[in-house]
Deep mutational scan, measured.
Amino acid sequence: KKKYVIKVYFEDTGKEVEIEAESKEEALEAAKRLAEELGLKIKKVEIYP
């Protein structure tokens, strides 16, 4: 089964997080949740198959 690796870059902090997920949708949801939890804004998202 294919996994996606999503790199999320946050504004202000210069922080980046990698998330593995089964689908792009799932990964983007996780990225949004994470940003909310951390109180950060997402600057850029890169998706690698």
Rank of each mutant, 00 (worst) to 15 (best):
V5D: 01
L34Y: 13
I42T: 01
I19R: 01
V45L: 03
E11C: 04
F10I: 01
K32N: 15
K2A: 11
G39C: 02
P49E: 15
I42E: 01
I42W: 01
K1I: 14
A35C: 02
K43V: 06
E37C: 15
L28V: 14
A31H: 00
A27R: 00
L40N: 05
K32A: 12
K3D: 14
G14W: 15
K41D: 07
K1C: 10
T13V: 10
L28P: 01
I19C: 05
I42R: 00
L40C: 03
A27L: 10
Y9K: 04
E16I: 14
I19V: 07
V8R: 00
K2Y: 02
P49V: 05
A30W: 13
E20C: 06
I42A: 01
E36H: 13
E20S: 06
S23V: 03
E16S: 12
V8Q: 00
I19L: 14
K1F: 02
L40W: 04
G14M: 09
L38D: 01
E11I: 10
A30V: 09
Y48T: 15
A35K: 02
A35T: 03
A31Y: 02
A21C: 03
A27S: 04
K44F: 14
T13C: 01
D12N: 10
I42D: 00
A27T: 02
I47P: 04
I6Y: 15
S23K: 02
E22Q: 04
E22D: 08
P49G: 07
L40Q: 08
K24F: 11
Y48H: 14
E29V: 13
K41I: 10
K32L: 13
L34H: 07
E26P: 01
R33H: 06
F10P: 00
K3L: 14
K41N: 14
E20V: 11
D12G: 13
K41M: 12
G39K: 08
K24G: 13
K1N: 15
V17W: 12
P49W: 04
K3N: 08
E22I: 04
E11D: 14
K1Q: 12
L34A: 04
E25K: 06
D12E: 08
E37H: 09
V8P: 00
K32M: 15
Y4S: 09
K3S: 15
L38T: 05
V8N: 00
L28N: 08
L38F: 07
A27F: 02
S23D: 09
A27Q: 00
K24P: 05
E20I: 12
Y48D: 06
I42Y: 01
E11G: 07
S23T: 11
Y4M: 11
K1R: 12
P49Y: 11
E16L: 06
L34G: 01
K2F: 03
E36Q: 13
K24L: 14
A27G: 15
G14I: 15
E25M: 07
I6C: 02
K2H: 14
K3I: 08
K3M: 11
A27V: 15
E22P: 11
K32V: 12
V8C: 03
Y4K: 03
A30S: 14
A31K: 00
T13A: 13
E11N: 10
G39T: 02
Y9G: 03
V8K: 00
L28G: 08
A35H: 02
L38H: 08
E29W: 06
Y9M: 13
V17E: 09
R33W: 06
E46A: 09
A31S: 06
A35E: 04
V17R: 08
E26G: 14
K44L: 09
K2D: 07
K43M: 13
S23I: 03
K1Y: 02
E26A: 15
A31N: 00
E29I: 06
K32D: 08
Y48A: 07
I19A: 03
V45G: 01
G14D: 10
K44T: 08
I47D: 04
E11R: 06
L28E: 11
D12L: 12
V5L: 05
D12K: 13
L38W: 04
V45C: 03
I42K: 00
E16K: 06
L38P: 01
Y9N: 03
V45E: 01
G14Q: 11
E22C: 13
K32Q: 13
L40R: 14
